[in-house]
Simulated scan of single mutants.
Amino acid sequence: MANNQADPEHQSAGAWAKKYYLATRVVMESVLRPFDLGPTQWYVMHQLMTVGPTSQRDLGRMLRIERATLTGVVAALVRKGLVTQTPDAADQRQKVLTATPAGAALWRQLPDPIALILQTAFDGVPQRDIETTTRVLRVATGRLTSLFPKGNES
């Protein structure tokens, strides 16, 4: 078949990378739903709980999400009382995000969805295979990102 993408049995590395990504999203959403958190909210909380207060602009770059998307995620976390948003001392136009005591308390209760995903997905897989997969996907991603660098700034 000339166009493998039309083939329902498409087995390329890219197709499997996408299937893996989608499966991890399902697991994350299922694990976090009882705590009224979504995956992006979890990543914001992870940053704030493991690194500490972070500028909203930097967080958007780290998570590679659009400013408008992050604004909505942060607004939800603020509304839930899990995060505070304060003006940056150096630039009042920028906002710094900090976990609240309620956010820290919730964080201590949360199961780690990433640990669950890694344990489940890679149980019994030799470490060298995981390292090879990671290296191949890192190189491929870097090559694709450099192909159109302007499209990868979000």
Rank of each mutant, 00 (worst) to 15 (best):
A104N: 14
G60Y: 07
H46C: 09
T98I: 02
V73G: 00
P113G: 04
T134W: 14
V44F: 03
A76R: 05
T84L: 10
R57L: 07
V96G: 00
A115Q: 06
L48M: 05
M62K: 13
Q92V: 15
L22S: 12
P53D: 14
L48Y: 01
V26I: 13
V83N: 03
V27P: 02
L32C: 04
L63F: 07
I65F: 08
K19P: 08
V125Q: 10
E66F: 12
M62D: 12
V31A: 02
M28L: 13
A75Y: 03
L48R: 01
L48T: 00
D112A: 01
P113T: 05
Q47F: 07
A105N: 11
W42A: 08
P8G: 12
L77A: 04
T133M: 15
F122R: 08
V78M: 07
T71C: 05
D112Y: 02
A17W: 07
Q109F: 05
T69H: 11
S30L: 06
T86R: 12
I130K: 10
Q85N: 11
R135T: 15
S30R: 10
A99I: 00
M28I: 02
P113Q: 07
V139R: 09
V31W: 05
A68D: 12
P126Q: 05
G103S: 07
R33P: 08
A104T: 11
S30W: 09
M45P: 00
D91F: 02
Y43N: 09
W42Q: 10
L32K: 01
L118Q: 07
W16H: 13
N4T: 14
I117T: 11
M28T: 03
V125S: 10
Q127F: 08
L22C: 08
E29I: 03
M62S: 11
H46M: 12
V83T: 00
E29G: 04
